[in-house]
Design a protein around this nucleic acid. Structure first.
Length: 430
RNA sequence: GGAGGGGUGGCUGAGCGGUUGAAAGCGGCGGUCUUGAAAACCGUUGUAGGGGCGACUCUACCGGGGGUUCGAAUCCCUCCCCCUCCGCCA
């Protein structure tokens, strides 16, 4: 969430940011109305509490001395009764004020290109050579089904649409990619491996910004009086590791990486990517999460993005990096780079990673602070995260980019130690 | 699922309903002493919001949320979490 002080004192700046995101700035009006009333009332309530505390203290003293206190007691009672209704009103305003500010998105960083949608994103760089084919390259789902390593048909039977079965070398390839990515990030990039809970509570979802606004995108566990949500990304449990904590300056930066399955309802995407692994209700992802000092966060965003890109470099997959424009960025993000990998059959770059700096937006929601050495008070840390990478999409990209005319697929060098083979062929026997 | 016990400041741990934002110890920070260090001694040491140039001051916070009361860390209700025993179970 945004700094309430900032919203109040630099309202124009916030309105400008909302407009750049293509939003109606009127959501601010309601917040400011409630917040102003809340502050006015808080002032009154605090003054009356002070009076009440003084009187109560007096009662205590008199009683201790064995004197009669009924006079002051009556006064105190009157004051106290007067406060009660105001406190009720204040509680209500507190709740509504928070409800409103939780719906306001983050302010884009000044370096973010202005734009209304994905057509106005800015390409930052391209890496790798596009593969040349002497035949018409097939889409990954056709390759996978033909090789007997992917089965969408039966996945539909046992779960529904947007699920997949990985089989044989397909399953092994998925597992190889997970291990390859985790090894790279832990051994060479300095991240600590985490395996977190896959279901989380409402507070965690609110901390990273999925709730309250995007509940429709989440799977929720219903047959339990407790409330659990399936994680849509490891960002949620991993960022919340330090929720409501005050870290020491010397603990920062903290780098975590986590492999988890991710679960998304994909509500409203009915026509999109209905075939293949691109858009699934359940998919695997290796996530990178950073907790850093505010002054370092943009430098850290660059290095995090490079850490994710390194996976594609080593796999030999061509990709490009784009800076999302203001209109295409996620709710909580201040700046986002998408990494897009080349899919030959579609002749398109498609998102395989999204790397964001949230600045203090999540830290403020989740109350993640740090203390500078020798300084009084605390500051909010900055959080970042990025996919490093989406595993299913990486597998798809490998199938498409390294497919051969005979239907087999060459395994990238970097994966061979994990796969034990250098090529997936038809009817491969385990 | 059944029966008990407990959640207090960075940690350990006190706390008759009335100067308790909270004893004490440890840790941390500053100082004295020392060639240096240790030990010892002295001082200091929570978070958030509001007011004041400032010294400072007010309000809230003892797992979360309600309630009783002039007054709640202390009493009541409720939820959450942790521990022990029994049962069940990967």
């Amino acid at each position: 969430m945004l700094d309430i002080k900032l919203v109040r004192e630099q309202t124009d700046k916030v309105i400008d940011a909302l407009k750049k995101r293509g939003m109606n700035a009127s959501i601010l009006d309601e917040f400011l109305k409630i917040e102003n009333e809340r502050r006015d009332l808080l002032k009154v309530v605090e003054e009356e509490r002070q009076l009440r505390n003084r009187l109560s203290e007096e009662v205590g003293k008199l009683k201790k001395q064995g004197k009669d206190a009924s006079d002051i007691l009556a006064q105190a009672k009157a004051v106290s009764e007067n406060i009660t209704s105001k406190e009720e009103r204040l509680r209500d305003l507190d709740i509504r004020s928070v409800q409103e500010i939780l719906l306001i998105p983050n302010i884009p960083h000044e370096s973010v290109p202005a734009g209304k949608d994905e057509t106005e994103n800015k390409e930052v760089r391209r890496c790798g050579e596009l593969p040349q084919f002497s035949f018409k390259p097939k889409p990954h789902d056709e390759i996978g089904e033909a090789l007997g390593i992917l089965d969408f048909e039966r996945a539909g039977k046992i779960a529904g649409s947007r699920f997949a079965i990985y089989k044989g070398m397909g399953a092994r390839l998925e597992r190889a990619l997970i291990n390859f990515m985790l090894d790279l990030h832990t051994k060479e990039h300095g991240y600590t491996e985490i395996f977190p809970p896959l279901m989380v509570n409402r507070a965690s979802m609110t901390g990273t910004g999925q709730l309250p606004k995007f509940e429709d995108d989440l799977f929720k566990i219903a047959n339990d009086e407790r409330e659990f949500f399936l994680i849509p990304t490891a960002e949620v449990p991993v960022t919340n590791i330090h929720r409501e904590e005050i870290l020491n300056e010397e603990d920062l930066p903290i780098y975590y990486t986590a492999y988890t399955p991710c679960f998304r309802r994909e509500a409203g995407s009915y026509g999109k990517d209905t075939k293949g692994l691109i858009r699934q209700h359940q998919f695997n992802k290796v996530e990178l999460v950073k907790f850093v000092k505010p002054e370092d966060s943009y430098k850290e965003l660059e290095s995090l993005t490079l850490n994710a890109e390194e996976v594609l470099k080593r796999l030999g997959l061509p990709y490009r990096v784009v800076a999302l424009c203001t209109g295409d960025m996620g709710f909580s993000s201040a700046k986002t780079y998408d990494i897009e990998v080349w899919f030959p059959a579609q002749e398109k770059y498609r998102e395989i990673s999204s790397c964001s700096n949230f600045e203090d937006f999540q830290a403020r929601r989740a109350q993640i602070r740090f203390k500078r050495k020798g300084k009084k008070g605390t500051e909010f840390i900055h959080t970042l995260n990025g996919s490093g990478l989406a595993v299913g999409r990486t597998l798809s990209a490998i199938l498409e980019n390294f497919q051969q005319e005979d239907g087999s697929v060459i395994i990238p060098e970097a994966l061979r130690q994990y796969m034990g083979i250098d090529r997936i062929v038809m009817n491969y026997k385990l």
